[in-house]
Simulated assay, not measured.
Amino acid sequence: MRRVLTRLGGLAAAAMLTVGLAHPSQAADPAYFEFTDITRERAIVRIDDPAKIRHARDLLSGRTHDRPHIFGRIIKRQADYNPRWSFHYNPETVDFFDVAIEVCDATLPYVEDHLDEAGGAFLPGLVWCPWSSRLTREVSAP
């Protein structure tokens, strides 16, 4: 039963991203945000979509508490703005959530340590939704 739920969870995560990508964003300058998780490790995410940038800024200012956690598809390589980690979010897939399925939850260090397994049973479709993720601040472009 768990295997079926895991596969359904992966499909649900992929569907969430597909719906999110169905409406291309307007061109805008990207914004960069630091986020953390339960381990207190920190990473940088690039956000390109103006509505999602606005949501991130609203979270940081306290104007909203809706959808405080970050999710999207990861790319298995380092980004110049996120040099500490061997992976980063694909900016085209970044979004926010309140509650997500377990199959896409993992901490920053766990993803780094198991990056070679990501995309299979671990983080199916490379969708990553750390449940304890929280934006901490906006940072300057690299």
Score class of each variant (00 low, 15 high):
M1G: 13
M1W: 05
R2W: 08
R2A: 14
R3P: 07
V4I: 13
L5C: 11
L5K: 15
R7C: 08
L8A: 14
L8E: 01
L8Y: 03
G9E: 01
G10S: 06
L11T: 04
A13N: 05
A14K: 13
A15P: 00
L17R: 06
G20C: 09
G20Q: 06
L21K: 13
L21N: 09
A22W: 10
A22S: 15
H23S: 14
H23E: 10
P24V: 10
S25G: 10
S25C: 09
Q26N: 10
D29G: 12
D29I: 09
P30E: 06
A31S: 11
E34A: 12
F35K: 11
T36N: 06
D37K: 08
D37M: 08
T39S: 15
R40F: 05
R40A: 12
R42P: 00
R42E: 03
R42F: 01
I44Q: 04
I44E: 01
R46N: 02
I47G: 05
D48Q: 10
D48H: 02
D49L: 07
D49E: 10
A51D: 15
K52F: 12
K52D: 15
I53P: 05
I53D: 09
R54V: 13
L59M: 13
L59G: 07
L60W: 02
S61M: 08
R63G: 13
R63H: 15
R63A: 15
R63F: 13
T64I: 12
H65G: 14
D66P: 00
D66I: 07
D66M: 11
R67Q: 08
R67Y: 04
I70E: 03
I70N: 04
F71G: 07
F71S: 09
F71R: 15
Q78I: 07
A79C: 09
A79F: 04
D80R: 14
Y81N: 02
N82F: 07
N82D: 05
R84Q: 09
R84A: 13
W85L: 11
S86C: 06
H88W: 02
H88I: 04
P91A: 08
P91Y: 02
T93S: 13
V94F: 07
F97H: 01
D98T: 05
D98V: 05
D98M: 11
I101T: 12
I101Y: 02
E102V: 12
V103N: 03
D105K: 13
T107S: 15
Y110P: 01
Y110D: 05
E112N: 04
E112L: 04
E112W: 01
D113M: 09
L115A: 03
L115N: 00
L115R: 04
D116K: 07
D116I: 04
E117V: 07
A118R: 03
A118P: 00
G119A: 06
G120C: 10
G120V: 11
A121T: 11
A121M: 11
F122M: 12
F122P: 01
P124Q: 03
V127W: 00
V127I: 02
C129F: 00
W131V: 08
S133V: 03
R134Q: 06
R134H: 03
R134W: 01
L135H: 06
L135I: 11
L135N: 06
L135D: 02
L135S: 09
T136V: 15
R137Q: 15
E138K: 14
S140L: 14
S140Q: 14
S140E: 13
A141K: 13
A141R: 14
A141I: 14
A141D: 11
A141C: 12
P142G: 08
P142N: 10
